[in-house]
Nucleic acid binder design. Structure first.
Lengths: 249, 249
DNA sequence: CGTAAATCCGGCAGATGCGCCGGATTTCGA
DNA sequence: TCGAAATCCGGCGCATCTGCCGGATTTACG
């Protein structure tokens, strides 16, 4: 909790954000994370991205300041299945303090106990990030700060962390080259797809929209073509991730 | 740009966040937005939510400090179709300054020109918010601040706005009672659904997973039941919105 | 120690999806 | 003024999905 007591310390956040925006390849990430630790007096920081790469069923994207030993141990123990930061944090919208997790659970206690041995801080926060295309990430920081410093950190720098998490995810997306070719669906196509996504059959959709069943099938067909989808299910999934189904234009 | 020059001004942000968390019904929102304008010296603030309510094809959720005249005029002119804050802002992850929009476009110039007449500020920022279930929102603020003050506001309070936008969306979701019953899918069920979502047939999925086609159909059937879905397409849509398809657990 | 859930397998009838054939008018921008 | 795209409509054959019948073992939890 140094250097940041003056308001002008904001400059260091801007510096980080700028560097994130200028990253050209993943090799610069570790240094950036290290700088982040420095600035905020943290013990560790970790980025876990899901749906960041193009292929489905891919393993998640990881960028951490943890030791390799901890990462290996974590994987070997399949901690991801019980880790509340992942299990709960990934399913939230707002950040969560690790203190809120259930320490009565023996598995959880073991996880955090071993984490500490491997160099993670006693306290932590996880910040979920939601991207536009179903991609999401979890940025977790840990610290060994005193109660007082930790409270201070949470109060005054949560915003910074929120912003850093967002920009970090954006940077990773840019580096991973996940570009989504935004197919443009016509209003009718979108409308038909929307109702099909709700489980309606072509006939039901036709009734809802006051069209003939055949017309609905035609719209669905062209929607599939535009989206490069193999079937309606695929099309709904693609359109959903491209947020083409959330009404509006 | 008053009252906030001291660092302790943070208290006002916390006060807003706390009030947002304590909202019990929508009637308290206008007062809260007004308080926000006061604190940051803004001209207007607007919340536009999409996918916030349960029904599909619903009109978006709106909470603004604009005059009713502007809202009516906006709707009558169908400005939503050309409004870059919606068209572009809603499709981004990071905030965008209204200065970045194409002022060469005649429609856009007309929109912002008329907006100013109806009491919106000259400058603006829109902050996209992405929820967990395909829901999203756009929080837009405007100001008539001088160039210098505006730059200052952007630099130092973007974090606050980001956080306010997030918490505002969370509060609206809570008020609108959009609760997603988290069905728990077994690993196999999720896996099958994942590949079906990628456009694979049951047979293809069976080959990929090394199962019999019939077994895949069984998993899909139970997945549909658990999700309360009418068919695979519906199931994929529901599971996707519940982020059950983003591998990991 | 029973119960529940997860993991697997087979078959069948009817509904639905899918692709491709044909046709039409209107609208909008180049 | 020409063409492209959006809006509509009908039919046919085959592939796939869906629901429901039956069976099995293993694992975990109380």
């Amino acid at each position: 909790m140094n250097r940041r007591d003056r308001y002008s310390g904001d400059l260091e956040l801007f510096e980080l954000l700028e560097k994130l925006g200028e990253l050209t390849d993943a090799t610069g990430i570790p240094e950036l994370l290290g700088r982040l630790l420095d600035i905020y007096g943290l013990k560790t920081v970790a980025y876990l991205g899901s749906g960041v790469t193009a292929q489905p069923g891919q393993s998640p994207y990881l960028a951490v300041t943890y030791s390799n030993e901890w990462v290996d141990h974590y994987k070997a123990q399949r901690f991801v299945d019980i880790d509340p930061t992942v299990q709960i944090g990934m399913r939230r919208m707002l950040p969560i303090d690790w203190d809120e997790f259930d320490r009565a659970d023996e598995d959880v206690r073991r996880l955090f106990g071993e984490a500490k041995e491997f160099g993670l801080g006693r306290r932590g926060i996880s910040l979920p990030v939601h991207g536009q295309h179903g991609d999401r990430a979890l940025v977790s920081i840990t610290s060994d700060a005193s109660d007082r410093d930790w409270r201070y950190l949470r109060l005054h720098y949560m915003r910074d962390f929120q912003m850093l998490a967002l920009h970090m995810h954006q940077a990773i997306l840019r580096l991973e080259g996940k570009t989504v070719e935004q197919a443009r669906l016509s209003p009718r196509e979108r409308e038909c797809l929307l109702w099909v996504a709700e489980g309606k059959t072509a006939w039901e959709t036709a009734v809802i929209l006051g069209l003939s069943e055949h017309t609905v099938r035609c719209y669905l067909e062209s929607a599939r073509h535009k989206l490069g989808a193999a079937n309606n299910t695929h099309a709904v999934n693609k359109a959903g991730k491209a947020s083409l189904l959330t009404q509006l234009p």
